[in-house]
């Protein structure tokens, strides 16, 4: 049983799956995730290998492995957080709004990389702790002791399988871009 719980939105769930090491990272962080059914339903595809003509393809993914290992629990927005959910949904896609409501109702941090979601969360729940994909990946890989080659692979997976571009203000953006530059 992990000692820390973090609410994850769809973009972070996709990013963690894109690394190919979501389970390892979460276990190293002693963290489990909660996510709403709406967010989980958005986790359908990662980018696949381009076809012979260079066109993008999709690779089907799901969260079954994370849930099976107790690293993810899908939970609906509790009744008490419906007001917040509805307020957030005025600006955000329902799946993104529901993540904020879930995090606040359980008193846990919210993992999101979405610029608008972070802004709405900061306004609607000033005390809500926000974390990004890169912070989870960086700390998790440090805890595991991933070497440089492994880090480059993680970053490359995030980019190629997740089409991930961190928010401009992400403190770990430089770290990610440096790793990507090493992959060329």
């Amino acid at each position: 049983m992990a000692s820390k719980v973090v609410a994850a939105d769809a973009c972070v769930l996709l990013n963690l799956l894109a690394t190919g090491r979501a389970g390892d990272l979460l276990r190293a962080l002693d963290t489990s995730l909660i996510a709403t059914p709406l967010a989980a339903a958005e986790v359908k595809y990662l980018a696949g290998t381009p076809d012979e003509e260079g066109r993008p393809t999709r690779q089907t993914v799901d969260l079954a492995e994370l849930t099976a290992h107790g690293l993810l629990e899908v939970r609906g927005v509790p009744q008490a957080a419906l007001d917040l959910y509805v307020r957030c949904a005025a600006e955000l896609h329902d799946a993104d709004a529901s993540g904020i409501a879930l995090a606040v109702s359980f008193g846990v941090a919210l993992a999101t990389d979405d610029g608008l979601a972070r802004g709405v969360a900061a306004r609607e729940a000033a005390n809500l702790e926000l974390v990004g994909t890169l912070a989870l990946v960086r700390k998790g890989s440090e805890a595991i002791g991933v070497d440089q080659e492994g880090l480059v692979k993680l970053a490359r997976n995030l980019r190629t399988r997740g089409n991930f571009l961190p928010p401009r203000q992400d403190p770990d953006r430089e770290w990610y871009q440096r790793l990507l530059s090493l992959s060329t």
């Binding site: 996709l14 894109a18 958005e42 595809y45 990662l46 999709r58 896609h93 329902d94 089409n163």
Partner: peptide
């Protein structure tokens, strides 16, 4: 411009989130 979230971007582009990110990239 952070006027819409990633979920909305995917909806506007009639695709899934990662494909929408791919178009953005």
């Amino acid at each position: 411009a952070e006027k819409i979230s990633e979920g909305s971007l995917a909806e506007y582009l009639m695709t899934d989130r990662v494909s929408a990110r791919g178009i953005y990239l």
